[in-house]
Design a protein around this nucleic acid. Structure first.
Lengths: 158, 158
DNA sequence: TATTGTTATACTCTATAACTATA
DNA sequence: TATAGTTATAGAGTATAACAATA
């Protein structure tokens, strides 16, 4: 195994085996949110007020499923549909205050680093961040738009 | 956002948005493997010859589903059941040659680092690996056995 | 005519509960 | 009596196809 493989292997282990995954699980179970609902909520947290169709493309599922997902969100009082001013066929999904709060709660849980990050000093953390940034920056030039089968994505989580 | 959050954020982006996820998708779709089958295969790639019950605990699903999964694997000629010598109730799942080849193919796809890792020099890769190792080592002391709801795990993949 | 979202429906994935064989 | 795996069944999650409204 080469150096890059080694480094990437470590990275994957931290990302996929971390405690944040368990915390996510806890929230999902506790609030009885389906995976689809959580994905939708997280997408809205990133930018609220996108159309049904945009959401379908964004989380990689069929538009008809977005209908079910937003129905669910609506019944829970977490989001509502609003007509798009520019096209009466289009509906915009908008988070309610409660939805916004929940979305923030979920995404903040995901962004808390594992406690084991405390093993690194400030300068080591800076080094780590900068190295990873370099990878991300390099990636921008390489990859284009990605269309991924969601079923395979979940399978890829060991 | 603190330094640790920053670093962790970069790490998650690389792990979850990388091209390896797409390649996994391609294999899954092409070979018509369900997420459960892929998980099982990858678990066996890590250590072949575990019992049905161990597999259930390992990939976090109900034992009855392992029956279905191994039936599937068996019909495809990828794995078979063998009686455990120490207890006639127990069945050991063993990969066939074809299964072993496929499992290796899948896990090798997952372990190929994104092309963007080429942006780092050898010494930077070494630094990165060592920093991540430090985190992983620290984690061993902290975390115990984890029981995770698989549905939530998939939801955590953005 | 093409596109957005919805409905009705069906299929896939996974769990629960009851069962059989062995310990 | 308890445990490993299986069976039958039910439920959740998601897609497909046909449809209505609007463009």
């Amino acid at each position: 195994m080469g150096l890059a493989e080694d480094a990437f292997d470590r990275l994957r282990r931290i990302a996929f085996e971390g405690e944040h995954i368990e915390k996510m699980a806890a929230i999902g179970v506790q609030k009885k949110l389906s995976p689809g609902v959580i994905k939708t909520l997280m997408r809205l947290a990133r930018s609220d007020g996108i159309s049904m169709g945009e959401m379908a493309r964004s989380i990689g599922c069929d538009p008809s499923y977005i209908t079910a997902l937003v129905d669910d969100l609506d019944q829970r009082g977490l989001a509502r549909r609003e007509p798009a001013p520019y096209d009466r066929r289009v509906k915009i999904i908008v988070l309610s205050d409660a939805g916004q709060a929940l979305a923030e709660e979920i995404s903040s849980v995901l962004s808390v680093p594992p406690a084991s990050f405390a093993a690194l000093s400030r300068s080591e953390l800076r080094q780590l961040r900068d190295l990873l940034d370099k990878v991300i920056t390099a990636d921008r030039g390489i990859s284009g738009e990605a269309v991924v089968d969601p079923a395979a994505v979940q399978a890829a989580v060991p």
